[in-house]
Simulated assay, not measured.
Amino acid sequence: MGELFLKIIPYLLGGFGGATLTVFYNHNKGRIQKMDCHYIDEDIMSKLPISIQEGVIHNNIYTKQFAIINTTNIDHKEFTVIFEFDVTAKILKHSDISKTGVNKFKKKLLKENEYSITIKNFNRNDNVKFIFEIANITNNFVNVTEDDCVGFKICFKDKRTNIERSKLTFVTKEKINSTN
């Protein structure tokens, strides 16, 4: 009886071990992964009201730099990222820098304060850097969200290196639209 038990136990443990590994694999495979959005740098170009073009006066002008980094464990064929700033803000200039070059992705301004870009062929550990020139910032709010994608969400991280940081608040879309 004991000899028979010793012959059967490896098969029982092997089946149990394999089933346990399968459960852990399936649990981790199906979860939503996180892609990082780093807030890299900010510079104040003007805090005084300035006239840019045809009598348009802007209260202030900032430059802001962000980087989207693929920290997931899969390559993404195509997805859209939307940057939204204060309701009163106006995006004056925008550019993106990636491994394929400068301003290679399809982008558009949805509103004066909202920018959308479609990123294609985004492999693991790739990154895209975004540089914005923004006028009329009042609350210094920003919302970065993903669209047309499956399996990941964008997580915001402040990675500025300067000692005196301004207060940037990462908020939801509803909060941006509710403040005037």
Rank of each mutant, 00 (worst) to 15 (best):
M35H: 04
M1Q: 03
E54G: 07
T22E: 02
N177R: 12
A19Q: 09
K157T: 07
G14F: 02
V142C: 05
H58T: 00
E112C: 06
I91M: 06
R31M: 11
N70R: 03
D86K: 05
K167R: 15
N103K: 14
F170R: 00
K64N: 03
G101F: 07
L110H: 03
Y25P: 02
G30L: 08
T172K: 13
I176W: 04
F79Y: 15
K47C: 10
T63V: 09
T172L: 06
G14C: 02
N123G: 04
N143Q: 12
N180V: 04
G2Q: 08
T138Y: 06
L109F: 13
I117Q: 07
T138L: 01
I32S: 02
I91Y: 11
F24E: 09
L92W: 00
A67M: 09
Y39L: 14
N127T: 12
N113F: 00
I69W: 04
C155F: 09
I8Q: 00
G101L: 06
K99V: 03
Q65D: 12
N127Y: 12
D86C: 08
N143M: 04
L6V: 03
S46F: 06
T172G: 14
R124P: 00
F105A: 00
K107T: 11
I131F: 15
K47W: 08
E164S: 12
E133P: 01
I137N: 00
L21I: 12
I32M: 01
G17R: 08
L48I: 15
K108L: 14
N125H: 10
K157L: 11
T118N: 11
N127R: 14
T100A: 06
I57W: 00
G15I: 04
A19T: 07
K34E: 08
N73F: 08
L4C: 08
R124Y: 03
G55T: 11
L109A: 12
H27F: 07
N140D: 13
K120W: 02
N140L: 13
L92T: 00
R31K: 15
I9T: 14
M1R: 07
M35V: 07
N123R: 09
T169H: 15
N70A: 02
T71D: 13
F170M: 01
F141E: 02
I97S: 05
N180F: 10
Y39F: 15
D148M: 07
I8F: 02
F66S: 01
N162K: 15
C37L: 12
K173D: 15
V171M: 07
D86A: 05
F122M: 02
N70M: 04
K173E: 15
I117C: 12
Q33K: 14
Y25N: 10
Q33F: 10
D43L: 13
A135K: 04
F85V: 01
E114M: 13
F152A: 03
S46G: 04
F122C: 01
A135L: 03
I117L: 12
H94K: 14
L6D: 05
V81E: 04
I154L: 12
D75F: 02
A89C: 11
F170G: 01
F170T: 04
N113R: 01
T118G: 02
T172I: 05
T80S: 15
N139D: 10
K77T: 08
R124K: 15
E54P: 00
Y39T: 01
E112G: 10
N26S: 13
Y62M: 05
K64E: 01
E146H: 04
F83E: 03
L110W: 05
L109Y: 13
H94L: 11
